[in-house]
């Protein structure tokens, strides 16, 4: 059986989420910062009248920005249990169809914070695709 992933990059690392979880992809929107919010929250965006929380995936996944700070991030709006949530990513890639024989659980040596959010790692021909669990990614729970 094969799965489809919407792929994107954060500091050159290729990530993917289940394509069925993605509501839409929109260019950068003006953000309203929220004081006292968890650090992963970059702010609020107005998505056609709906107020959506935008999460910074660098901070969420503990990944250092890769230097290109002037590039405006792109919103991947996910449709989750708690409503729409936007992930801010550096670059959006293709939708990939991957057969599950290429899947493997994330190796135990991956940074723990990231590993909690990964469902699996797909071995693509020339690189690895890290598949994020959409609901766990947007659930900040006790995490900052």
């Amino acid at each position: 059986m094969s799965n489809q992933y919407c792929t994107f990059r954060i500091s050159d690392i290729l990530f993917g989420v289940d394509v069925l979880k993605v509501q839409e992809i929109i260019r950068f929107q003006v953000l309203t910062e929220v004081p006292l919010a968890p650090v992963s929250v970059r702010g609020l965006v107005n998505l056609r009248g709906q107020i959506v929380t935008a999460l910074d995936l660098h901070r969420r996944l503990d990944i250092q920005p890769s230097g290109q700070l002037d590039v405006e991030p792109i919103n991947i709006v996910l449709c989750t249990e708690g409503g729409a949530v936007s992930l801010l990513v550096d670059e959006v890639g293709d939708v990939l169809t991957v057969h599950d024989e290429h899947d493997e659980p994330p190796p135990p040596t991956v940074n723990e914070r990231t590993r909690e959010l990964l469902t699996k790692v797909c071995k693509l021909e020339d690189e690895l695709l890290l598949v994020l669990d959409a609901d766990r990614t947007v659930d900040l729970g006790g995490h900052p």
């Binding site: 929220v34 006292l36 107020i51 959506v52 929380t53 999460l55 708690g82 659930d139």
Partner: peptide
């Protein structure tokens, strides 16, 4: 409009 659940915890 309500805030997302990531921000529900902020009392102010």
């Amino acid at each position: 409009k309500p805030l997302g659940k990531q921000l529900k915890e902020i009392p102010v």
